[in-house]
Simulated assay, not measured.
Amino acid sequence: MGLQDFVFEDSYKKFGLHLFSKGNLETINSTQFRPYIKILFVPAGYELTVDFNHYKTDGPTLFFLTYQYLDIKNADSDEASFLYYNRDFYCIQIHDKEVACDGLLFHNVFEIPKVELDDSEAVIVENLLENIKDELETKESSAEEMIRTYLKQLIIRATRNWKKQNLNTEISKATSSEFETFRDFSRVLEIHYREKHNVAEYAELLHMAPKTLTHKFKSLNLASPNQLIINRILLEAKRLLFYTDKAVKEIAYDLGYEDPAYFNRLFTSKVGSTPVNFKKNYITGKKYNI
């Protein structure tokens, strides 16, 4: 069966919905969607890799991706949905930053891109997706705004569920100010990890002392800001090693390290393998975790 494809597009904005199953994974796995923000709604029985994390769905699950690499390795015959759009189509302003195009679901220090849905939530998401499909098919002049409204509802509901499923008790009980620090750090880390490598630089961006930032993360029972910075850098290093032909020296420079030997030592100490061996061993099936 061919891929069912529904698309809205004008000069700057693009939004699409694909319906797929095990018979047509090639298009979904291709690199053509990498520049877009992406949401997958998959039923039980799907196996997929997002970057270097592997998932098997036991029930309906939403996945939220930006530039991560996606590889759906196995799919059930039940149909799945794939939404993709650019920032010109949907990017909520700063007062709604928790559900923005770079909001909690898409960039967070936990690197958890999924939300599992119970039966009632799955029905609600299915209805929102059906409404989006109907709007794409009708092509009414108001369709664009209706689609954006349904998309925001989906993101809001998923954000609520993500917080329930992934935030520990300390964060759940945190004040609004403490939680915003956690979110703001995730956001600025995603923007600046290539050129800013120490806690003081991020503390300055967040208008607080480095000790204050570190203390806030400790009080929330999170890893230290320094460790989270390193984790993000190493994740990008793994991406570049595995998915490009760049030399280790070039990757080091890309990630802001003027001394490739230092970068090599950092990667080896944290990952447990040299960059060259990581690439070779990962291809042959041996996995490493940060």
Results as ranks from 00 to 15, higher is better:
81 S>N: 07
40 L>K: 09
243 Y>P: 01
279 K>Y: 07
80 A>E: 09
163 K>W: 06
255 L>G: 08
144 E>R: 08
254 D>Q: 11
167 L>W: 14
213 L>M: 03
206 L>C: 10
171 I>C: 07
264 N>P: 00
270 K>W: 06
168 N>A: 03
73 K>C: 02
262 Y>W: 08
106 F>H: 06
235 L>S: 06
219 S>W: 00
91 C>I: 03
130 E>G: 14
260 P>W: 08
98 E>K: 14
213 L>R: 06
217 F>M: 06
127 N>Y: 04
256 G>P: 03
202 Y>H: 02
131 N>V: 00
222 L>Q: 15
12 Y>C: 02
180 E>L: 13
119 D>W: 00
14 K>N: 10
126 E>I: 01
195 E>Y: 08
223 A>P: 07
74 N>I: 02
90 Y>N: 01
274 T>G: 06
270 K>L: 11
157 R>N: 12
153 Q>F: 13
286 K>T: 07
260 P>A: 03
116 E>H: 03
137 E>Q: 11
1 M>F: 08
167 L>C: 09
173 K>I: 01
49 T>R: 15
237 A>D: 05
246 K>D: 09
258 E>H: 08
168 N>K: 10
138 T>F: 10
230 I>E: 12
117 L>Y: 05
266 L>T: 11
71 D>A: 05
75 A>C: 10
251 I>V: 08
28 I>K: 08
113 P>H: 07
178 E>N: 10
1 M>R: 05
175 T>Y: 05
138 T>G: 00
147 I>N: 04
218 K>Q: 14
119 D>A: 11
54 H>K: 12
263 F>T: 06
196 K>E: 10
146 M>Q: 09
143 A>L: 04
234 L>E: 03
268 T>C: 03
131 N>P: 00
221 N>D: 14
88 D>N: 15
58 D>G: 15
201 E>G: 02
127 N>R: 14
92 I>R: 14
195 E>Q: 12
240 L>C: 02
132 I>R: 04
225 P>D: 05
246 K>C: 04
32 Q>M: 09
180 E>R: 12
252 A>D: 05
281 N>E: 15
113 P>C: 03
178 E>H: 11
220 L>M: 15
104 L>V: 12
111 E>R: 15
13 K>A: 12
94 I>G: 05
64 F>A: 02
123 V>G: 01
157 R>V: 11
36 Y>R: 04
288 Y>E: 07
198 N>M: 06
66 T>V: 00
41 F>W: 08
246 K>F: 12
165 Q>H: 05
21 S>H: 12
185 F>C: 02
233 I>F: 06
107 H>W: 12
56 K>Q: 09
78 D>L: 11
138 T>Q: 13
25 L>E: 03
280 K>L: 10
65 L>N: 03
109 V>F: 09
108 N>D: 04
279 K>C: 06
20 F>K: 05
253 Y>T: 10
128 L>W: 13
158 A>V: 10
238 K>S: 03
188 V>L: 10
225 P>F: 07
128 L>P: 01
79 E>I: 15
245 D>L: 07
92 I>A: 15
